[in-house]
């Protein structure tokens, strides 16, 4: 009897030890890929790094010179415009959800739809903007690319604004309203100020998300191998350039693609760490 119990106990402990080991192995498995991918990007990216990257234009096939200047500038313009378009609408919709429709049925539906938009495939948004802007307007344009990316910015900003405004204590609203301040002033001058780090974090996270997005640009902004700051025509941009260069058989193009991939990764990681830092500081201040 006692031996049987002892045996059962041993078996349970053994099973436990094995499965905990497996869970540790799973964590190592995750870290392993992270390390491998980052190492590849950094080593191949640094290898192709040079000053010419920022001064030269994207080269035609077969030449050994050139850089990514036009693509970098184009990408910055596209991302900037996308944030300018998406963030204000997102902040307004988030404000509506948190301040006017917090517990309403319609608010619940919009929150639900926003969550779906948040993880919707980005290529679908590209197709949407293609049928909306490119086909009727005739031709690829930087504006279309920025609009497609703005639809990715929108749900991220809506969600963070909604959540951050909900964290602002109700007494703050009541105190301001009791002074006779109209609601729009309370919202824009009191609540936004209290929730500012959170909202900025949302915008930064959205920026990090779109800066590497390729799929929605393929048939909206397209690409352009020349210098162009004209948003009404096809715009050069980093992700699509990387795509084309990486898929090509030319060695030098491949190297440039890795350099671009490295630049994007560094940018994305820097921006998302900046966002994390902002939110962390806010947490400490509130505790």
């Amino acid at each position: 009897m006692a031996i049987a119990r002892e045996r059962l106990y041993l078996r349970r402990r053994l099973f436990n030890a094995c499965s905990l080991l497996l869970s540790g192995a799973a964590a190592l498995f995750g870290l392993f890929w992270l390390a491998w991918i980052l190492w590849t990007t950094v080593s191949k990216g640094l290898d192709a790094m040079s000053l010419q990257l920022f001064t030269g234009m994207t080269p035609p096939p077969g030449t050994e010179s050139g850089g990514l200047k036009n693509a970098i500038v184009g990408s910055l313009m596209l991302s900037g415009l996308a944030v300018l378009l998406g963030a204000p609408v997102g902040i307004a919709a988030g404000t509506w959800l948190a301040e006017f429709a917090r517990d309403s049925r319609l608010g619940g539906i919009v929150r639900f739809v926003n969550d779906i938009l948040l993880s919707a495939p980005s290529i679908v948004l590209g197709l949407f903007v293609y049928t909306l802007v490119v086909r009727p307007g005739g031709g690829f344009s930087g504006y279309a690319g920025a609009i497609a990316m703005a639809f990715i910015v929108l749900p991220v900003v809506v969600r963070t604004t909604d959540e951050m405004l909900k964290l602002v204590p109700g007494q703050m609203r009541e105190a301001a309203l009791s002074l006779g301040i109209p609601q729009w002033k309370v919202t824009t001058q009191v609540l936004y100020r209290a929730a500012l780090p959170g909202i900025v974090t949302g915008v930064l996270l959205a920026l990090a998300r779109i800066s590497g997005e390729t799929a929605p640009l393929l048939f909206t902004a397209f690409n352009n191998q020349y210098w162009s700051t004209d948003m009404s025509g096809a715009m050069p941009n980093l992700p699509v350039t990387i795509f084309q260069f990486a898929m090509s058989p030319f060695e030098h193009w491949n190297r440039l693609a890795w350099a671009g991939a490295f630049l994007i990764t560094v940018f994305v990681l820097a921006v998302s760490m900046g966002a994390r830092f902002l939110l962390l500081r806010k947490k400490i201040r509130h505790d």
């Binding site: 995750g30 991918i37 980052l38 799929a215 990486a246 991939a261 994007i264």
Partner: peptide, 18 residues
């Protein structure tokens, strides 16, 4: 682990291919 989520998908693709 969340850092992995932030890496753009095109990087995964290039790493996968090369």
């Amino acid at each position: 682990i969340e850092l992995l989520a932030g890496i753009p998908s095109i990087i995964y693709g290039m790493w996968g291919l090369f």
